[in-house]
Amino acid sequence: MQRRKRKLLKPRRRSKPVARPITVPGTPKVSVVIPAMNERRTIASVIRQARRVHPATEVIVVVNGSTDGTELIARRSGARVIAYEEALGHDVGRGIGAKQARGNILLFLDADFVIPARELRPFIYAIDRGVDVALNSYMGITRTHVVHPVVLAKHALNFAMSRPDLRGASMTTIPHAMSRKALEVIGAEHLAVPPLAQMIAIRSGLDVHKVHEVGVGRVNPRKRRAYKVDPLRNLIIGDHLEAMEWLLNETNERGQQTDLSRDRSFVG
């Protein structure tokens, strides 16, 4: 009883507030884009880790539809904040943040996963070495016979693009990074639909690789368990269909895959 009381009296350890926003001399090299919606529990830690990925880093937090003070915490943590009152929807914040980014390397994170900076640096290094889009190698649980439909869709997209080496790596998964060149080729407005952005990147001949595995499935499992049916499932499957439609419109109805010696005139 005594112990419990003392514990209650003990002030909770909070992250150190940063009084002034970090000013990066000249243009920053790395821009970290973090869309956030009601993430006050984690946003400060996410920003703290993000700032450590490179000495010249700017952190852009796109706060949307937040009512819990996420914006204030983000500002105090030294991030550039772009705030919207209404919720923008999944991944739209990424495009908005990317438009505002000044760095040559863009790193995309989510505000609900705290990923240590050492796990983020491989993505920055890869872009520095000349990769255009650096993806997380994590592809969900695939050692089973039945997989989640989102995992299935991610695999299908890469196979449709003849990139079997990517397996289930996807721009839907964070963290991932891209060069400024990649951003210009893809177009910031397409970042709202990550599979579409990935499709455009591969189709445009950009260097897309999976570079490092961060197990984002395990980082924050508690939140996932709250829903019985993943509410984003249908959205993400739709995103993949949208990406495939883009490919089919760009190429032909077979996505430029071979028909081998098939002679269709016999069955007209």
Partner: peptide, 10 residues
């Protein structure tokens, strides 16, 4: 369908 996203903002 994608009913959540405010794509016009982009």
């Amino acid at each position: 369908k994608d009913v959540m996203r405010k794509r016009a903002k982009l």
